[in-house]
Design a protein around this nucleic acid. Sequence first.
DNA 1: ATATTGTCAACTAAAATGCTTGAGTTTAAG
DNA 2: CTTAAACTCAAGCATTTTAGTTGACAATAT
Lengths: 145, 145
Amino acid sequence: MLSQKTRYAIRAMQHLADHYGQGPVQLADIAEAQKIPPKFLTVILSELTRSGLVASQRGKDGGYWLGVPPIDVSYGDLIRIMRGSLALVPCASRYAHERCKNCVEEENCRTRALMLQVRDKTADLLDGINLSDNVEADAYLQAAE
Amino acid sequence: MLSQKTRYAIRAMQHLADHYGQGPVQLADIAEAQKIPPKFLTVILSELTRSGLVASQRGKDGGYWLGVPPIDVSYGDLIRIMRGSLALVPCASRYAHERCKNCVEEENCRTRALMLQVRDKTADLLDGINLSDNVEADAYLQAAE
DNA sequence: ATATTGTCAACTAAAATGCTTGAGTTTAAG
DNA sequence: CTTAAACTCAAGCATTTTAGTTGACAATAT
């Protein structure tokens, strides 16, 4: 599961994408529109700013905006930034690979082989969609349910 | 990420699958072979036994064995049993659907639409592979790296 | 009987999560 | 050059989750 923080980050970024090119958006506005505790949002936006995806300006009339065009921010990147990895196990991560605790034999691990496949499929999807895609929620939701 | 407990559960089940039809396997044997803390394994095997996937017998020469053929235990089921859901957000779960905390509008949520797709792809993969598949680790690992 | 093996609720320590506090720093405008 | 409006950020904190352990008990084969 994604943490609440990651989910807030996604919503905040969608909000910024929706206001791309319209100047700085203030934290309080994002917090209210997206129902995110304002003080917590400062932590989240700071992280995103440090990552380079978001730009900010302090002082009066300051605020936040996307540092790169929405089309260049994939959901995969977003989740990697907030969570560190897309994988279900550390040893199946591409960018943050780490040996699993108590692993018996990583080299020939059945679980790992499977989890690498899951990771790749997940990445295909999440890296293929970005903040400019206005995901056709209705269409997909209806087809799926 | 999958919890350590879920990873142990997967390894324990693979172990039982490897010894399917060979009579009861004792907890201590599984624990040693799979490097799982024995007392923790009792918790895990109890859960799996209660779920019906594993059968057990007490007393001398007792132990555990798969309650159903390996081919009938998909990794998807296994993860659902241990973790509750395959989804990345509660509102994208099929079998354990739950409204996300602080959700703004589930009905028309971009994130949800996306996460439902991710969930479906993940499920396709994890439900399509089971304990009798001896995942061609080497082949896949080499192709991927 | 007794040794062996699983069952299970309750407990615990440590880590992660979800926030808040509060003391800054920067900026625009008067 | 003062002030109010914003962002910045390390530290702290309560709660929940995770990863186990303890210990008392139940069943079974010999």
